[in-house]
Every structure is written in structure tokens, then in C-alpha cells.
Nucleic acid binder design. Structure first.
Lengths: 197, 197
DNA sequence: CACCAAACAGACAGGTCTGTCTGGTGTCAA
DNA sequence: TTGACACCAGACAGACCTGTCTGTTTGGTG
């Protein structure tokens, strides 16, 4: 009666884990808590994920998947590659004002997992590489002669604004970041207004 | 025989805690481990600090004190305020290549303590406010008409380079950050080459 | 020398952590 | 109808956590 179909305990666990790990921190949340919040037994949790470590990795992968969807939405919503880059700033800033904002889940996870060889850190690197790659691709399409360097600069501004906004608890870092990003993009455009090719 | 004088157990604990908390993360290190590493009993640890939370706060305060000393060294070593700002980038970059680099201890601590009201977060805010204040003061002395905004931008670049360098495990973010900082400082100088006053 | 504060050694309480195991229950498909 | 399977309920092991307590030893000071 009201019993959910077998097979979706994993999804419920992942959802609960995602909320709890992000909000409280990973080491601060036990598997009992995750299972209870998911309305699932610990046995079901271990049956689906095998260990807490693997659940943590699954949590980050899921998070990365959802982030990728947002990026796709941005891509679909803008034709100009420069606008897409700036839209990333807007998306991050909008996310800040959502309830329970705690900054970048990947950076938070990385600071709880010191070992660079840990699978968790691998997911973090994968995510950041994807972000950087997106920025670089868009800047290349915009015809920037130094898309790579510019992408790195955009990364610094985005990451800097994210961590600073967590500490200061306001959106000013994002305003400053986006303003500077616009300036840099405009300057890059001036350097080579219509590049060959 | 070889017994240390009474009264310095606190210092030994702080030193051990500083190394362990930074390297492994705060939640990952128990007080037993700290006491053992310090060569001190748990009773001595609790006698000096009262609780783990207070030890964590003391750890961050001590870290902030040592950081302030580095800032003073930079101030003493450069007369030009613009050079001082750039020297901060150099100092952070040099720190990266030291063994066991794990990024900013304050940001790492903040991501382990979600509650903004926690005393730990207060120390983190204090530290970041001090950094920002230093940058702003130097930029004001340099005669920049928008020292405040420029200081914010320098913060973004510094923090961005720090967290990015942790993930990617190389120094490129700092190269990019410093290069951009130099450009911004030069541009700010051009705007008002010799400001009134 | 006598005293005291601070450290030592180490047991202890009470709780939480990850992970396992046993046995019962509901659902679906053959 | 029967069997496979995924789940529930909850106890359990063993390690680790923070924090406290008793009693002993030591170094520095009056």
C-alpha cells in the first residue's frame, strides 16, 4: 500500500544525499541520516551504491549532469558565443540567491578530500575541465585570438566570485566579475574585430 | 629528562593542530590524533582550549596572524603600492609550490562549517576582510579613483587562482591572474596618471 | 625544602560512524 | 501459483568520536 516500485530506492537515496551532502558537508552526514531522509533502509542504500565513497562519487556525477543541462539551456538560449559566456555568470549569480546556497559543490567536496588521487577529486577535475572547455569553445567561436587565455581568466573570475560570495554572503562579487568579464570580452573584440577565418 | 617546561603544551597543540587540520581537513582529524602528534595528553589539550571547536578557532586565528606577518613583510619590502599588490600574487604563487599545498585554509574551513553564524566563519570573514582592506588601501595610495572596485577585482583573481590551482595542481592560474592584475593596474594608472591630491 | 600549577598516564562514558547480517514482505513476471 | 528480486525492519560488530575523570609526576617559585 503506497509502497513505491522496486528499483527506485537508488534515485531516492541520490536525491537525499545530494541535498544533505551539499547543505551540511560530506563528512558531516552519515549514511544513516541519508537513508532515513530518503525513506529507505541502510541495506537498500548499500545494495545500490556499495559504500559511502561510491555514493559520494555518484552524488557529484549527478550534480555534474544537472550542471551540464543548465549549460545546454544557456547554449540553446543564446546564439552569440560572447553572450553565452556572460550568461554563465548570470546563471551562477542567480543560483546564489536560491535558498541554501553554499557555493560550488565540487570545490567544497575537493576541500573535504585532500588526496588528489581520490576518485572524488577526479570528478571535480572533470567538472572544471568541462566548464573551462565550454568557455574556451565559445571564445574560439567568437573569434578571439587568445581564447585559451581568456577562458582561464573567465574561470578565475567565476571561481573567485563564487567563493567570495559564499564568505561575504552577497552578490557584489558577481557584479564585479561580470562587469570585468564584459570589459575583457569587449577588449578582445577590439583587438581583432573580425578575425580571418 | 627532556621534559618540556610547563605552559607550552598549548603551543605544541596549536602547531600540531595547524598542520593536521590544514593537511587532512578539520572533521577528518580527531582530538586524540592532535594530542598524540603534539606529544601531549588529551587532558592538557582540553585544559588549554576547552573544546575542539575552540581549538579550531585558535588554529584559524594563528593562521591569520602568520598571514598578517607575511603581509607586513611585503609592505616592508616594497615602496610602490602597486608593487605591493602584485607581490601578494607572488606570495600566494610561491606558497603553492610548497609541500603539502592545499589552498586557502580559511576557504577550506568555511566549506566544512556551513553555518554562517559559526565562530569559525567569523574568523574567515575577518581574514578576508583584512586581505581586501589591504588591497584597497594600497590601491588608494596608488591614487586609483576606483580603488574599491579594483580591490574587489584583485580579490576575485586571487581567490580564483587559489581554488583553481588546487584543482588543476599547477601554477598557470596564478600566471594568468597576475598578468591580468598587471593589466588592470596599468589601465587604472592610465585613466588617471597623476591624480589630484 | 615545600608547595602548586601544569602536565602525565590512561581508563571511561556515551554517542556516532561505516558496513554487515538475518528474516520478513511486497511486487512482478513467467 | 511460484519464484526471483528489491525492499523493509532492526540488531549487530568494531572502530572512532568528543569530552571527563582519577591519580601520579614534574618543574618552578616562595
Amino acid at each position: 500500500m503506497g509502497r513505491t516500485r522496486p528499483g527506485d530506492a537508488g534515485a531516492k537515496v541520490l536525491k537525499a544525499a545530494s541535498a544533505l551532502f551539499y547543505r551540511e558537508g560530506i563528512h558531516a552526514v552519515g549514511v544513516d541520516t541519508v537513508a532515513a531522509e530518503a525513506g529507505v533502509t541502510k541495506a537498500a542504500l548499500y545494495g545500490n551504491f556499495g559504500s559511502k565513497s561510491r555514493l559520494v562519487v555518484a552524488y557529484l556525477r549527478e550534480r555534474d549532469r544537472r550542471w551540464q543541462e543548465q549549460i545546454d539551456t544557456i547554449t540553446a538560449g543564446h546564439d552569440d558565443p560572447r553572450e553565452r559566456v556572460l550568461a554563465v555568470f548570470d546563471a551562477y549569480e542567480a543560483w546564489l540567491s536560491r535558498d541554501g546556497y553554499r557555493g560550488c559543490a565540487f570545490l567544497n567536496a575537493a576541500s573535504e578530500y585532500p588526496d588528489p588521487e581520490d576518485p572524488v577529486r577526479e570528478v571535480v577535475r572533470h567538472h572544471k575541465t568541462a566548464l573551462r572547455g565550454y568557455l574556451r569553445t565559445q571564445l574560439e567561436r567568437a573569434g578571439s585570438p587568445r581564447a585559451d587565455g581568456l577562458a582561464e581568466e573567465m574561470m578565475l573570475l567565476l571561481e573567485g566570485a563564487t567563493v567570495t560570495s559564499v564568505v561575504s554572503r552577497d552578490a557584489r562579487p558577481f557584479s564585479a566579475g561580470k562587469r570585468l568579464a564584459e570589459t575583457l570580452l569587449a577588449a578582445a573584440g577590439d583587438e581583432v574585430p573580425r578575425p580571418a577565418r
